[in-house]
């Protein structure tokens, strides 16, 4: 049934640290690698070696420039995948019941054998978390690697989503956001984790940690080129100083 559960026992989700992400896209690659062979239909590419390659991805890294009122602009790498919302609009619009949110752990999934590929759930999601696969014509989305996190056939340290396992900078964390004592919940409380587009009323489970504040006294970018200029010493140095003083 495509109604949402009133509450879920756990709220499994990701916490993404925007201060740490270096934008290497390793999570994008490992997500595609794991999920093209795991749960459901593969994540196909169309014309991967052609003029206009397109493909299905469950996780993508955008890069933004933020310009504070005072001080230099900074670059923030921004990984984005399904936020497993509590009020997931993608679930209730589904006409077939293929889209659902699990009541035990809150994961939003698609039953691909019931999906008619109408695309309405992708329209309903404000985050762009769902992509229709170009070959299989069913809706694909992040499963939170549901085939890893409960998988007793793989070593325990691997029982986290593929993106979390692979992140070389440890910018991605996985856990139960319903448990205030969990690492992820404490991280969110400590760092002021926030929701994306809270105004859309979707109540995302995934949280983002803001970039830490930069040095306040750094008003203007340092002119690095000037530091590299050769400095005259000895007689030439004296001449340079003298001539500069004359004007």
């Amino acid at each position: 049934m495509t109604t949402l559960p009133e509450t879920t026992d756990r709220k499994l989700g990701l916490v993404i640290d925007l201060d740490i992400c270096v934008g290497c896209h390793a999570c994008v690659v490992s997500c595609k690698e794991w999920n093209t062979g795991g749960y459901g239909a593969p994540l196909s590419d169309q014309q991967p070696y052609g003029d206009e390659p397109v493909g299905t991805f469950l996780n993508r890294v955008h890069t933004f420039e933020v310009k504070p009122e005072n001080g230099p602009a900074r670059v923030v790498h921004f990984p984005k995948s399904c936020l497993h919302c509590e009020d997931a609009p993608c679930v209730t619009v589904c006409p077939t019941g293929a889209s659902f949110k699990r009541s035990d752990d809150g994961i939003v999934l698609v039953n691909e054998s019931s999906c008619i590929g109408c695309g309405l759930c992708a329209w309903a999601c404000p985050y762009g978390a769902r992509e229709m696969d170009g070959a299989e014509k069913v809706m694909k989305k992040c499963t939170l690697c549901v085939d890893r996190i409960y998988n007793e056939n793989i070593p325990e340290e691997d029982r986290v989503p593929s993106c979390v396992r692979t992140c070389p900078a440890k910018a991605r964390h996985f856990g139960d956001l319903n448990d205030p004592q969990s690492d992820v919940s404490m991280m969110v409380a400590d760092r002021g984790g926030f929701d994306l587009m809270p105004e859309q009323g979707t109540k995302p489970v995934n949280k983002y940690l803001p970039p830490r504040p930069k040095q306040e006294d750094l008003d203007e970018p340092v002119n690095l080129a000037s530091l590299a200029e050769p400095k005259a010493t000895g007689f030439l140095g004296w001449l340079d100083d003298a001539l500069t003083r004359i004007g």
Partner: peptide, 15 residues
């Protein structure tokens, strides 16, 4: 609001 970076400043897509 989409990126939550509005608290820092004006945000635009860089890449």
């Amino acid at each position: 609001s989409a990126t939550g970076l509005g608290k820092i400043g004006k945000t635009r897509l860089f890449e």
